[in-house]
Nucleic acid binder design. Structure first.
Lengths: 150, 150
DNA sequence: TTGACTGCAAACGATTTGCAATTGC
DNA sequence: GCAATTGCAAATCGTTTGCAGTCAA
């Protein structure tokens, strides 16, 4: 979820620490590791996946802490929860605006930037409904890997 | 989920029956009731909500049948599952293409049609990824009711 | 008649919670 | 030192499943 030409992981980690402190969140070892894990890989892991990966670094970390941390960071806008068709939720570091491609076969989620969509105006009818804070596009399809496999 | 000027509930129910028969699905009482319930109200009920509502008509229907029916109808494209930020899945009859407005406060889901988005071209970079079968916009915000309440 | 469908009850997986011990500030 | 955070274990919630009886075709 990091675009390397824009900033480095360590830069993002610094921002993360500042964000936490401003929000009154303690910068614990667990939170740091979980957030760094999300930055390091461009995929969209489930809580359980994150847990498996980081137990190599911190063997004592518990799965409930991963869940709790993700929920806390989500509340503070540092992490985004991605709704997929699967039962497990998936997560990503909330760094730059983008949209999602989901493969119906392998369930993999891919990021895309789509400035044309970001710029498009909302339908006028929305104004009566309320105030929009975010708009997001989700596309379903079959990725080339899975197409080849069939 | 029905746009009244386009067709009536009974017309949609006829289509539903034809669809089922073509797909080799038996037109059972339970399936009929569940689908009609989805047509009758423009909201996006969870399986449990559907079950509560229809027990007034068919007291013996079980919650697992509702789940099973929704899954079956989803597989056949007659029903759509909506991913929200909540833990429960929500459902709607799959009748015409539209997008969703979700209120972050009351979690209510509203349908909107948005032809400008439907017509917009996908980013060229997608073609390398695979074949897209659907694209959908989801907007989060706070509805006027909830704004007034705060 | 017969296989598809249903209701029941029990299992399941993902996530949440209460509590005591621990840790960052 | 103290409140926030963690790890543990147990609970909860939404959903799924095996099985025997039932029903649409």
């Amino acid at each position: 979820m990091l675009s390397p030409e824009q900033s480095s992981i360590s830069q993002e980690m610094e921002k993360f620490i500042i964000h936490c402190k401003q929000a009154g969140l303690k910068v614990t070892h667990q939170r740091t590791i979980i957030y760094r894990e999300l930055l390091q890989r461009p995929d969209h892991p489930a809580a359980e996946t994150i847990h498996k990966r980081i137990t190599k670094e911190v063997p004592s970390i518990s799965l409930d802490t991963v869940y709790r941390t993700l929920a806390t960071l989500e509340q503070h806008g540092l992490v985004k929860r991605i709704q997929t068709a699967e039962s497990q939720a998936r997560f990503e570091a909330a760094i730059f605006p983008h949209h999602h491609l989901i493969c119906s076969a392998c369930k993999d989620v891919m990021d895309i930037v789509w400035p044309e969509f970001d710029q498009i105006e909302l339908p006028a009818s929305i104004h009566d409904w309320g105030a929009i804070s975010s708009k997001n596009a989700v596309m379903y399809g079959v990725c080339t890997n899975c197409q080849a496999r069939c």
